[in-house]
Each structure stands twice: as structure tokens, then as C-alpha cells.
Design a protein around this nucleic acid. Sequence first.
RNA 1: CGGGGCGUGGCUCAGCCUGGUAGAGCGUUCGGUUCGGGACCGAAAGGUCGGAGGUUCAAAUCCUCUCGCCCCGACCA
Length: 574
Amino acid sequence: MYWHNLFVPTLREHPADAEAVSHKLLVRGGFIRQLTAGVYSMLPLAQRTLLKITDIVREEMNAIGAQEFYLPALNPASVWRESGRWDVMGDNMFRLKDRKGAELCLGMTHEEIFTAIARNELRSYKQLPQIWYQIQTKFRDEPRPKSGVLRVRQFTMKDSYSFDLDTDGLDKSFDLHDAAYRRIYSRCGLRFAVVEASSGAMGGSASNEFMVASEAGEDWIASCASCGYAANVEKAVSRLEPVPDGSGLDAPEKFATPGIRTIEALVTFEGGAAAHNQIKTYVCVLDGKLTLALLRGDHELNETKIKDAVGANDFRPAQPDEIFEALGAHPGSLGAVGVTTYPVIADEALRGRTSMTTGANENDFHLRGVNVERDIKVTKWASLRTVKAGEGCPRCDATLEVNKSIEVGHIFKLGLKYSVSMGANVLTQDGREVPIVMGSYGIGVERIMAAAVELYHDADGICWPVSIAPFEVVVTPVNFTDEAMRTAAETIYRELKAAGVDVILDNRDERPGVKFKDADLVGIPFRIVVGPKKLKENKVEFFTRSTKTNEDLDLASVVAHVRNVVAEAKAKLR
RNA sequence: CGGGGCGUGGCUCAGCCUGGUAGAGCGUUCGGUUCGGGACCGAAAGGUCGGAGGUUCAAAUCCUCUCGCCCCGACCA
């Protein structure tokens, strides 16, 4: 490929509306252009990178015996109604009607479609296990698309689904994916972490997320550098220092707290209590049901955790008037002592605590001396709080750190959710009909591209890992109109190409500075500069983008050398 | 959905408060000089000022509505 013929609309300045580094550089480097909010056109450079990523994905998926499909993005409502997700997905699903008025949607993921195929075609345990995948466009009407290609409304996903006879089989399929995913991200050059995650509305028993630490990320990951524990804060737990309780009372004692409405105010109030000796009562509505969440005064509720704890899809804080109607007091004076008509979900940190202070469900009154297990009817104990950096690791003596990360992949043990709701069953060896045990596994393709940019860039532009760079090598003649330089550059280009190197020749009639700047910005890992002075000594320069180092190479050996360097760089990513 | 911001040549932005001939830099085209890190000189093309309505002799500028985009929050397999 000659640069002159390639469409690479680089920009001298950063786009005004970009915030994330990957957004700025992908736009500036001529990789992507926005069509509308959360929808991007992939220009030739991005397409080259994405194809390299999907090639790697295909190789690794095929290597675990997965089979590629290509399923419709346009789906009938009926399949989604069967699984129950037509309603669950709410406004996040793009919906439309055809000319006859039939309801359709654009697929957000493909559990339903694959399961529909499975239930019609998989009949016997002899046909299992199966791993099916596709690389397809997914549509999600995100409330707030952002950060360029990181959070969008239309994107490419590799999604696979495993079909097994039993949970042992599922465990194997899950582990195969886990291993394949690690190879995929390694080969793409990403530094990543595998963390425990909430299974959320997908249902299922276990799930791992593949995360790339980055400021542009939207997930918070708690991790332990010492033992390797890592989990999304929607799931993470921590070890807390024990808190001393007071001597206790035989029964809770009501006391007046005029005007006291916050945990903080009660700390300094005469006769009040330290935050960690208070119970925070948070009233929320889960799937339409009023529920009390109890936490230590200085802890924060994690919405995902409480949703997971009760298996709810929908969460919202309760309105002040519905709280008053239910408990007879306003926020600031709430408590769970004596509450029996509503579910009370208590955070593990409250287990065994005594001498606690909490609202009395009467405005301007609190209770002290509350013994949680004696005085409160707890419906369910669960981890509800968001862990914080500096707290103890739950698995070892070290402390946790909390970092922002980009989710580039997610693998779930789905279990029976879809096979039961949609009736995908097989016969076992002894003739029993059992639902297929499923797993679901996703990879965000554009997110890999963006995460790589977030990870590898400098003031001059992108520094792609060789495996996913739009080109591996650029040959830059300082002056292409000069006969000698032109001949040398074209020869090197031709021979590199013949040697299997993905190379581009910058044949533009531009000043050298322009060509260097563009090559740096676009992020081509290696550059061969053919300049007038060195050429007279039969030498060229070899520049490594990531380290910004230069070395002189003999014209005679440059092709062999560069081919080897590229091969080694790729091999390192295996 | 709540809060904030922005829509002016291809890009980055000024002009708006205080209404009166639409600007700059970059990019593009042509001519010339240059040629190892986004050159220089000269000339030129290119804009219904997001859209609709209103106020006014006169609207990019003031008012109303509307659409789009960005950021924070909410939300998010």
C-alpha cells in the first residue's frame, strides 16, 4: 500500500468534543469519524486494526473448537418475549415496527437467537457440547454514549454460547473460554486483569470480567497486589477492622434528636454515636417492592449488590412520601427496629453488632442500644457495601486498591435461564429430558482497539502493539522525488512485502516533517527512513515508535533484519 | 431523565454582553521559493451563522420553540 492512495484524514488539532485519549487520537489519526451520538464510522486504518483483532479472536475461538455463525441483527419481538427480556431491556433496546405493524428489535446480544436454534436442532446429549459464536454488530440505546468508541450505541461484539449437558460440562466450556480470552488479550498486546463480576440481569452463577486499567474506564475494580484477588466493586468484598461496641442495653432506648437528619449530624450530637456505631437505613424500591437496606453508618450502598442480593432487575431510591407512608417518618429518622412488613436486607458488616444507634421511625427521635440480631428482623444478610481502597484484602493480609478499568470482555455461566424459559432440552443417556446448561461469553472488539490506545500512546500519538497496528512498518523516503531515495525505498518496500511484512510506503510529496508526524500519530510500530546522507553510505535508519530509538542499518541487510524484528515483536505477544 | 456547556467555511475558534457590509489560524486550489520533525511568499475558492417562528427599518447578535452534539449525574448483559 502506498500512503498516497490510502484515506488517512489526520488532523492537526484534537477534536473539540473529545475527552478520552483514545477518542482524541483515533479521530486525529484518521481512524474513526462520528456519524451521530454513539455511532462511528470505521475508516480504513481502524478497519485494518479491527480485522487484525477479529483474526486473532477467530483463531483462538476456533482453537477451542468453537464454530462461527452469522446471525441476524434484526430480531422479532417474539423470541425476546419468550426469554422475558423484551420487558427487562426497557429503553436500552432499539425497537421498531415493520410495515405490517409487527414488532422487531435490533439485537443487543444473541442468547435468544442461538437458543432458538439450539432448541430446534439439539435433541440428544450426543450432540453436546457445542460452542457457537459470531462476530456481529450489536445495538444498545445507551442513555449516554461517551468516550469515543468506548461507550456506543452500535458496536461489534464477538459473542459465543456454550451448550452442555451438565454443570461439569459448563465449567469446562467456561474454562476454555477463560483460557482463550487470556490468549486473545495477550496477543492483542493488552495488559489486563481478570476479575470476579456481578452476573446482573444476565442471570447465572459465575462470571469473570476482563478489564484493562484506564482512566477512561467506567468500572471500578478492587484488587490485591499481594495475592491477586480482583473483583468489580459491584461484587468485591473486603476485610474490615473490628469496631468496638458499647456495653449494650437490655432493650433499645428512644431519645430525642431534634433536627438531626444525617449520620454526620448525629456523630456530633450530644448523646449521639460515631458513624460506625450507627445503622444507616436506606429505603429503596426493588422491582416495585419497598425494601430496607441496612448498612453501617459510614458505609455506602452498592446498587448492583442489593439487586443481586434479592435477584431484582430494577432499583430506585424510594420517594420521601412513600417512605413516610410505609414507616411513619422521613429520611433522617428511619430505622428497621420493629419493621416486619417489608424485607430488611442487612449488610454483613452489621452482623453481631450491638449498642448501635439508628432512627426510631419517628421524626426527631433515634434509638440507641440496638442489638442488630436481637432487635431487627433481618430478612437476608448480604454484602451490600461498596469497598474502598485501603481496606483489607478478603483473602490475605494485604490491602486493596481500587482502580478504574475498561471492560473488554465478560464470560458468564448462564445455567438454565434461557434453556428453561425457551424450552431448549435434550435427552440424556437414560432417556430423561433435561434443559441444556448454557454459558455466554462476550468480547467488545472496538473496545480492544480503544483500550490499546489508552494503554499505549504518548504526546505524539498512538504506539500500537504490532499485532493490531494498521501497518507494521512504514518506509519513509525523505524525498520521494529523488531518484536514488525513491528507488531504495521502493525496493525495501517490495522486498518487505514479499517477506510477509505488513508495510506501507509513504510516497507523498510532503516535507519529511509531515510524514514523520503522521507516522507517529497513526502509531505505526516501526519506520524505515531513507535519507540522502545515510543512503550515500548505503545505510537507512530504523526507528522504533514505542521507544523512539533509532539505529542505522545496511541497505543490504535491512529487509531481513526488519522482518525478524517484526516477527520477534509479534512472538512476544503470544 | 436531572444539571451544565456548545452549535459561525473541511478543522480549531473569535464576533453575540452593547443589533448595522461575516472574521482569524490551520487545511484546500493556483504560482513561485523551499525540502530531515506539521516551511515561506503571493493569489484564490469556500459560510442559508443548526432549524423554525417572533421583535426590529435592520438579527450570527435580542425573545420563544425546536433539533443536534459534548460534559457531570442517574442509568448501563
